[in-house]
Design a binder for these strands. Sequence first.
DNA 1: ACGGGGTGTCACATAACGTTCACAATCCTG
DNA 2: CAGGATTGTGAACGTTATGTGACACCCCGT
Lengths: 228, 228
Amino acid sequence: MNPTILVVEDEPAIQDLIQINLQMGGYRVLTHSNAEDALKGIQHELPDLALLDWMLPGMSGVELARRLRSDSRTKSLPIILLTAKGAEEDKLKGLDSGADDYITKPFSVRELEARIKAVLRRRAPELTQDVIEHHGLRLDPASHKVTGHGRTLTMGPTEFRLLHFFMTHPERVYSRTQLLDFVWGDHVFIEERTVDVHIRRLRSALAGSRHDELVHTVRGSGYRFAKD
Amino acid sequence: MNPTILVVEDEPAIQDLIQINLQMGGYRVLTHSNAEDALKGIQHELPDLALLDWMLPGMSGVELARRLRSDSRTKSLPIILLTAKGAEEDKLKGLDSGADDYITKPFSVRELEARIKAVLRRRAPELTQDVIEHHGLRLDPASHKVTGHGRTLTMGPTEFRLLHFFMTHPERVYSRTQLLDFVWGDHVFIEERTVDVHIRRLRSALAGSRHDELVHTVRGSGYRFAKD
DNA sequence: ACGGGGTGTCACATAACGTTCACAATCCTG
DNA sequence: CAGGATTGTGAACGTTATGTGACACCCCGT
């Protein structure tokens, strides 16, 4: 699924400009004109990245960013702030609102997309279209293909997403709960043990090229994707 | 159908020069002397590429480009801007109008055609007249013929466009929505499942030479044209 | 008006998938 | 080495996505 981006911007012209260009870039876009509406919307659907205008009627973008950071549900949501040009520069550094990046107006569409891509690559690489390769195992999100040493491996959609997440987050243990959050989506209501079943299916899919050895069980903790 | 190019240029001499040469090159040409007329004309017929002069009486070419970008109907229309030489260079980078390419006057006809072809190839390869061949399947847009291993394959117009799009965008998964946008055109109101039906018709048309195997279903995501 | 090809939509068939369970295998602790 | 906890595994089940045949419609030329 394409990454979903939340845009909070009060000027309709800029709102449209951003929305249209991001949609062209393959993103889903949720738009709000003020912080209050945005917060409501987030309860309904959690976006993958937030693009907040610094100045907003009512609650400012900075304040909104702070709130998002302090709620456990949204604390790891990547945030980009749109700021007015130049003068504010020093304020920013002092005020550190916890944003991942800042873009100063006026900005080019190219720059906007580049920054979004950069932030996503850093914070949520499983959402980018980049080809990933580890130890001869290769996953291409665009073509939806997985190959091990050149050999095509077939697996179901869930196994594909699971592998994609693992390959973008190697060398780290994830609990079943975390995997459910990241791969299945948050606030789903599923048995934790279901993860085991998909791990098994992923392993048997990878067995064709012996890459099943990359999926390790960490007893009592969860699973880890890594060599060794 | 030959690609249609919208030309917006106020100097009659250059207008004629461009129009005549492009028509000779096999393009349909729609000409306007100012942005306002052009916008009206576009409501009537959507061209495949726009060639805009930077300086125009009334609304400038840059402003027109921006408007085209911000209207969902024309958001993905490839745009080439004609600019006066040199001096503007730095403005361009700052202002980013979202154009696909820039040509600085004076330009040669050869250069103009090359740029148009390049932009079309990048943004809408399914509009070029180039013959495409993959694994013995050959599609000729000019003569509207498809052959598989020399054997003629017959299909309806929609299947032809669908195949043309696939062959110009192989190795990549497209959702039903994307296919509707790219093959049927934007702002159509069609059931997503209709895509399935045309996929089936395309497959059975390709079955005559076993090339139906190139059309893959990616469950939960869409379809992909590729070997293997 | 008629006929034919092309198109979009539906209903149903089929296949693939996701989830859960029960039980087997394994590991760790004491 | 026993017993509890944890994980692996095969199969069953309901659910969802996709394949498919049929049909009504529309456009167009006869």
